[in-house]
C-alpha cells in the first residue's frame, strides 16, 4: 500500500502536466464534445451522421495534404484537382459499367459497381500522383532546394490551373453527375432516413484512413515515410531511397483525394472546378491542427465538419463560411502553429 500512494500521485501529476502541455488540444476536444452533444440534441441523428460523413471526407483530404506537406514540404494547392480527377474517373467508369451491370441483372454486380468505380478512381489518382511527382517535383528537387516551399507552392498553383483548364478544354464546363450510386431506398436509422450512398461514403473514408494509418504506423515502408518527414538526412543514412518515398507519398495523397472525389460524386458531381470547396476545407483543417500533422488532420476533419453543422443549425446557413473563418483567425492568433502545435521539420534546413 505504501508504494502505491506515491505512484498514484505521480500519475495524477503526470496527467496534469500532460493536460497543461497540450492545452489547445484539450480545450478544443472538450469544446467539440459539447458541440457534438448540442448538435445531437438540436438536430438529431441525421445531423450527427452528416457530421460524420463530411468529417470523414475532410479528414481524408486533409490527411493527404498533411502527408505531402510533412514529407515533401509542398504546400499542395492542386489537391482539389485530385478530387476533381477522382470524380471524373468515377463518373466515366461508373456510368457505362452500371448500364452493363443492369443489363446482366446480377445483384452482386450492381452492388459492387460503385465500389469498383471508386477503386478505379483511387488507382487513377495514384498513377496521376506518380506522373506529377516524377515530371514536376522530382526535377526541381534534384536541381535545387533553395526557396523550395515557395517554388513548390507556385508549381502546385500552376498545376491546378493546367488541370482545371485542361479539363474544361477537353470535357467542357458542364456538370456530369449521377443522382445516386445505389438505387435503393434510404435506410432508417434511429428514426432518421439516411441514404445508402452516404453510409458507403463514410465507410470508405473510415477504411481508407484506417488503412493509411496502419500503413504509416505498422509497415516498414510506412515507417520510412515518417522517417523522411522527421529527418531527411537521417533517412538517407539508413538507406532509405528519398525519391521512392517522396513519389510514393505524393501518389498516396493524390490517390486518397481521388477516392474522396469519387465517393462523394453523388453530392458534388463532376465539373472542372469541383475541387475548390474541398481544397479550401482541407486547407482549413490542416491550418487548424498544424501543418504536416497526420493524426491531427484526422481529428481536425471532424471538428471542421462539426463546426459547419453547428453553424448551419444554430446560426444559419448563410453563416456557414463566416464562423469557420472566424474560428481560424482565432486559432491563428492564439495558437499560430495549430492546435496540435506541431513543428514541421526540414523547413529550417532549407
Amino acid at each position: 500500500m505504501t508504494t502505491e500512494t506515491p505512484a498514484a500521485t505521480l500519475t495524477s501529476v503526470d496527467l496534469m502536466t500532460r493536460i497543461k502541455d497540450n492545452l489547445p488540444v484539450v480545450v478544443v476536444s472538450v469544446f467539440s464534445v459539447i458541440l457534438f452533444v448540442l448538435v445531437g440534441i438540436e438536430g438529431g441523428p441525421p445531423q450527427l451522421f452528416n457530421v460524420i460523413v463530411t468529417g470523414g471526407m475532410w479528414a481524408l483530404l486533409a490527411t493527404g495534404l498533411a502527408l505531402v506537406f510533412g514529407v515533401m514540404n509542398i504546400p499542395h494547392f492542386a489537391h482539389g484537382e485530385s478530387f476533381m480527377v477522382g470524380a471524373y474517373v468515377s463518373y466515366f467508369t461508373f456510368t457505362p459499367m452500371n448500364k452493363f451491370f443492369l443489363s446482366t441483372g446480377s445483384k452482386f454486380l450492381i452492388y459492387s459497381g460503385p465500389i469498383l468505380a471508386i477503386i478505379a478512381a483511387g488507382l487513377a489518382g495514384c498513377v496521376l500522383g506518380i506522373i506529377i511527382e516524377r515530371i514536376i517535383f522530382a526535377p526541381l528537387r534534384h536541381r535545387t532546394k533553395e526557396g523550395w516551399i515557395m517554388n513548390a507552392f507556385l508549381l502546385t498553383v500552376g498545376l491546378s490551373f493546367i488541370l482545371v483548364n485542361g479539363t474544361t478544354l477537353t470535357l467542357g464546363p458542364n456538370f456530369r453527375g449521377i443522382p445516386r450510386y445505389y438505387d435503393v431506398p434510404a435506410l432508417e436509422f434511429m428514426g432518421a432516413f439516411i441514404a445508402v450512398d452516404r453510409i458507403v461514403a463514410t465507410a470508405i473514408a473510415i477504411v481508407t484512413i484506417g488503412s493509411l494509418w496502419f500503413f504509416l504506423r505498422q509497415t516498414k515502408t510506412g515507417r520510412a515515410i515518417r522517417a523522411v518527414s522527421q529527418d531527411e538526412t537521417g533517412a538517407q543514412l539508413v538507406g532509405i531511397d528519398l525519391d521512392f518515398i517522396q513519389t510514393l507519398t505524393f501518389s498516396l495523397a493524390t490517390g486518397t483525394a481521388a477516392i474522396s472525389g469519387a465517393s462523394l460524386l453523388f453530392m458534388f458531381q463532376a465539373y472542372p472546378t469541383v475541387g475548390l470547396t474541398p481544397l479550401y476545407f482541407a486547407w482549413y483543417v490542416v491550418m487548424l491542427v498544424g501543418l504536416g500533422n497526420v493524426a491531427g488532420a484526422i481529428f481536425g476533419g471532424f471538428i471542421v465538419a462539426l463546426l459547419q453543422s453547428a453553424t448551419q443549425l444554430f446560426i444559419g446557413l448563410s453563416w456557414q463560411s463566416v464562423v469557420p473563418t472566424a474560428v481560424m483567425i482565432l486559432v491563428l492568433i492564439l495558437a499560430p502553429s495549430g492546435i496540435f502545435g506541431s513543428e514541421v521539420k526540414g523547413i529550417q534546413e532549407q
Binding site: K220, R226, D231, G234, V238, G239, K345
Partner: peptide, 19 residues
C-alpha cells in the same frame, strides 16, 4: 545524429536496419 526524434528508440533502431 539525425535521429528520428518523434519515434521511439526501438523504431529508430529498426529503421537503422531498413536495408
Amino acid at each position: 545524429l539525425n535521429l528520428f526524434t518523434d519515434m521511439s528508440v526501438r523504431e529508430n533502431l529498426l529503421l537503422g536496419a531498413y536495408a
